[in-house]
Nucleic acid binder design. Structure first.
Lengths: 220, 220
DNA sequence: AAATAAAATTAGATGAATCTAAAAATAAAA
DNA sequence: TTTTATTTTTAGATTCATCTAATTTTATTT
């Protein structure tokens, strides 16, 4: 495992995420979109990552992450999520403030640091957005989770994660009182616009839009 | 205050340190030596830093840090030392292990992060090597300190800092039982080689070489 | 199936940050 | 004060990561 540049780590993460844990193929444009860069830059980087065997890349056919690439990507993701826990649990950041800072911290190179940080935090299994934290070997298990949007009328669930980490989205959840661990019950579903009415913690009734319902994940 | 690159921040730090808090002039070669790079690279970077008015640079005449350069350098130093405290106090690193990691962490850009870290650590005034931590405005006060080598026979002092952060040096201090806060008394001085015999905490007698005596700083 | 549109790649430039080798300026020694 | 040595700077290359513009490949329509 050679030492990767920040840019390389970021591309690997993007490929990993966009391919759904590295299974399916990802298009050059999708990566460019995700990374706020140009397709030409992506092609170039994919060629380089492919030479290092971090991705499996066939020109014009899309890209997939390789086994060693996945290993690297998961370590970066592990670091990102551990730092997010640190920022929220120890430094009292809000969950909408931590992504950007963790984007920087995730590139710090020191296996010992991450080991100690993990100890310090008490080996958390999930980050502040409910995403699972891979262990040293890149292994993790996801909580079974479905979007609120797909829960049946009168169905209940506990909020376990959010699909999006956009600060505006997270701030909105704060405002209306949705948080990880909240108990929800669907008390009305509006067919034509996908919005719904839910009861949070058996006391707060609120209307949420389709966009919200699709990005809040619950478990039964 | 524009955002600086890692390289720029590192050069500024070097100029600041080598000039003794930015007073005197520093030579190109000294910087090259300090930064393990070539004089040509230094010249080039000094030209660029000079254009940004972070240093005062006259070709062939050496370089001095500017007011705005000093401000930036001190913020980087503040971050470095706060992270060192974090690593030792919270993550249980030894003082000889933290420099390298802090060299990376010091470049993380987020004023809020540093503010919160400072709060979390209880606003420490000194890092694990006894070096003062500048505040948000770059201000700090050094403890009065002299090398053990300059303490008179029978003189006493408390170890407040070390001049060098070389891991081998620090590990040696651990081994012989010298640490920040240790009470020392000079019980013998050997003229011809600069070595001495000292009493630590009124109970451990030990011989130390000139090199050690010059790099351990005490206050009366 | 040919024409058109979309997506992806290459070619060529640019800006950092670095290097080696050569030239220029300053300092030291004869 | 010349000569020599040292230090510093410039010139020219290189690598990484990016860009725009042009080209090529693949996908979609008519």
């Amino acid at each position: 495992m050679k030492k990767l540049s920040f840019a390389e780590e970021n591309y690997l993460k993007a490929v990993y995420h966009l391919s759904g844990a590295g299974e399916s193929d990802v298009s050059t444009n999708a990566i460019a979109e995700e990374m706020q860069t140009k397709a030409a830059s992506v092609s170039d980087m994919l060629r380089r990552l492919s030479e290092k065997e971090l991705v499996i890349y066939k020109k014009y056919q899309g890209v997939k992450i390789s086994e060693s690439g996945k290993k690297s990507a998961l370590q970066v993701i592990r670091k990102h999520r551990l730092w997010e826990v640190f920022l929220v649990e120890k430094l009292k950041f809000n969950w909408d403030q931590v992504h950007e800072i963790a984007e920087q911290l995730e590139h710090i190179k020191s296996p010992l640091l991450i080991e100690r940080l993990d100890d310090f935090l008490g080996h958390p299994k999930f980050d502040p957005h409910g995403d699972p934290i891979p262990d040293e070997n890149g292994e993790f298990k996801e909580k079974p989770q479905i979007p609120l949007a797909e829960v049946d009328l009168n169905g209940t669930g506990i909020v376990v994660a959010v699909k999006d980490t956009n600060p505006l989205f997270l701030q909105h959840l704060d405002k209306i009182g949705i948080y990880l661990g909240a108990k929800t019950k669907i008390i009305d579903k509006v067919e034509f616009d996908g919005s719904m009415e839910i009861l949070v913690d058996s006391k707060n009734k609120l209307f949420i839009s389709k966009e919200i319902a699709q990005n809040v994940l619950v478990t039964n």
